[in-house]
């Protein structure tokens, strides 16, 4: 059950696949079936390039179940250059060095493991941009 759920989200987790409205051009991540701007249901898949700006971030000292072994860890909101915002963990950086507004890029990492024999969930995290593409 859990396996199917994570498999279902693979296009979002690995490729930041959202949707674009064929009628008004509005872009969405996560994908939507109804356009927020014009109520059209004529939406098609669209991949996002994973670059953007850090909108906000915080470091958790107390974790929800399943993330205890990662504490402390940092999560953030990234505003993609193409419009949508994404929430994810921030990686490859000391949180003290982060600044709102700085350039970020998506990377694929392990999100969490469900015990020693359980599912390992991979997906996007963000890190400071290494170089402009």
């Amino acid at each position: 059950m859990d396996l199917a759920r994570h498999w279902r989200l693979k296009d979002q987790r690995y490729r930041l696949e959202g949707t674009v409205c064929a009628d008004c051009g509005a872009k969405f991540f996560p994908p939507r079936q109804v356009c927020l701007e014009c109520k059209s249901t004529n939406l098609t898949p669209r991949e996002f390039n994973g670059h953007g700006e850090l909108y906000s971030f915080t470091t958790l000292r107390s974790a929800p179940m399943g993330f205890e072994d990662q504490v402390p860890y940092t999560v953030g909101v990234v505003k993609l250059d193409e419009g949508p915002m994404v929430e994810a963990q921030i990686t490859d950086v000391n949180a003290d060095a982060l600044k709102i507004g700085q350039r970020m890029e998506m990377v694929t990492r392990k999100l969490r493991a469900q015990g020693d024999n359980g599912l390992i969930i991979y997906g996007y995290k963000f890190r400071p941009e290494t170089k402009a593409d």
């Binding site: 979002q12 996560p30 958790l60 974790a63 993330f67 929430e87 969490r112 997906g123």
Partner: peptide, 11 residues
């Protein structure tokens, strides 16, 4: 699917 799975708590 887009917040909790990343370890983002309510706090």
């Amino acid at each position: 699917d887009y917040e909790t799975v990343h370890g983002i708590s309510f706090i």
